[in-house]
Design a protein around this nucleic acid. Structure first.
Lengths: 216, 216
DNA sequence: CTGAATTAATCAATCGTTTGATTAATTTTG
DNA sequence: CAAAATTAATCAAACGATTGATTAATTCAG
């Protein structure tokens, strides 16, 4: 059956994604991946051509879902720039927690010096997201809602950087935060809302020009 | 001469540090390292015992200078908590730009799942720095200078995360910021002050309880 | 001369990949 | 439908290449 075949390929991709995210591309051997996936070693080459082909296939699968997620927050004219930022934070945090391993893989790939077709493609896609965020901030600046001297690039790096730091240094973060960062339940129930709240509380006073509220 | 020998060992460490930071531990072969360092392959084992020994030696060399840099900002009683934060930011940003390759190596190691003696030692040292920062923030909270609902852990992750994201994704950052992030001159002259200013501008309104300043 | 430094040659182990054979599934043919 | 032909999936075994490491011989320094 076709369904069986797709399921098996998908299973291999799942396992490989996790292994790659744990030990890196060079650290993961084809024997290790095939072993953990419970398939014969030759199947990797049979399905994906090569180890690198398998690596690329993981990205292709994820990237396919990437583009569709980019709903244009900017479309709604009746929301303030800050409300759009809040919406973006919500979306962003939700997304990164849904495909943890891939995020780690992605970041590892980006931090490597080698550049090729894959890296270029990834960068293009990431840039679409980044520029979308840029536009929101810029519109806030133009409308006078945000400060004029906001460092747009740095704000973006902040959003992505905080999350990457926490998720990609699991042991440090676990000690720092006092609970196991690998525990998915704790992540979703405690950490996700905490990250959202923090990003909002951090960025709001930096971005938004405060109005006179009557207290004090 | 001893001096000669130390120089050569140091040279190997320099090269290995760069290579490891570029292609990772598994991606770097001993032949690659020895070749770029211009020494015979066997010298690596002669000096450092093994590839892993070389890796550890890089950390030992850096860590030796780590501890001394931890001057206690907390000592001065006459500075406000925010001024201590500013001083910490200054120190931190200066430091990370002085040993770029190692910072990348360090982060790669931390993001790997495997844990051993090295990782534990690194974590201990990092935690000393982190807890120092914690103390500053906490003292600010206790004195009423900072908000009571400040998320101390998240603030710390922000400081480290922004820098890591920018420096460890050189291509993305270069496109985002519009200049080559690998160019050391541009980094020092333009980027370093920009990062310092941003971190201060970002954290101040989040941490510090604003007083009535007379304007508007 | 003696011990340390350096080299080329070599080692077993592991790497990613390929092979030829076998089984299972599908299509074609009469 | 049933037998034959074809294709797809799976496997154990082996390939050449590269890995980190070691050896033994040679050079160098004091």
């Amino acid at each position: 059956m076709d369904k069986e075949k797709i399921d098996k390929k998908d299973h291999i991709l799942d396992v490989a994604e996790r292994v790659f995210s744990e030990v890196g591309f060079d650290g993961a051997s084809t024997r290790m991946i095939s072993g953990e996936a419970g398939v014969n070693m030759a199947m990797l080459n049979y399905y994906f051509g090569s180890k690198e082909g398998l690596f690329l296939a993981i990205f292709e699968r994820r990237i396919a879902t990437f583009k569709t997620l980019l709903v244009d927050i900017n479309s709604d004219e009746h929301t303030t720039a800050w409300e759009k930022i809040e919406k973006y934070i919500e979306m962003y945090v939700e997304r990164i927690f849904s495909n943890n391993c891939f995020q780690k893989m992605l970041y590892q790939e980006l931090s490597m010096g080698k550049r090729g077709e894959l890296t270029d493609n990834i960068n293009k896609i990431l840039m679409i997201n980044v520029s979308e965020f840029f536009k929101i901030v810029q519109s806030g600046i133009d409308s006078g809602e945000f400060r004029k001297d906001v460092d747009v690039q740095m704000v973006t790096a902040t959003m992505y950087g905080v999350k990457n730091y926490i998720m990609n240094t699991p042991y440090v973060s676990s000690v720092m935060f006092g609970f196991d960062i690998k525990d998915e339940e704790a992540l979703n129930n405690i950490f996700k809302p905490r990250l959202k709240n923090f990003l909002k509380a951090l960025l709001k006073p930096y971005l938004v020009i405060e109005h006179d509220h009557t207290n004090k």
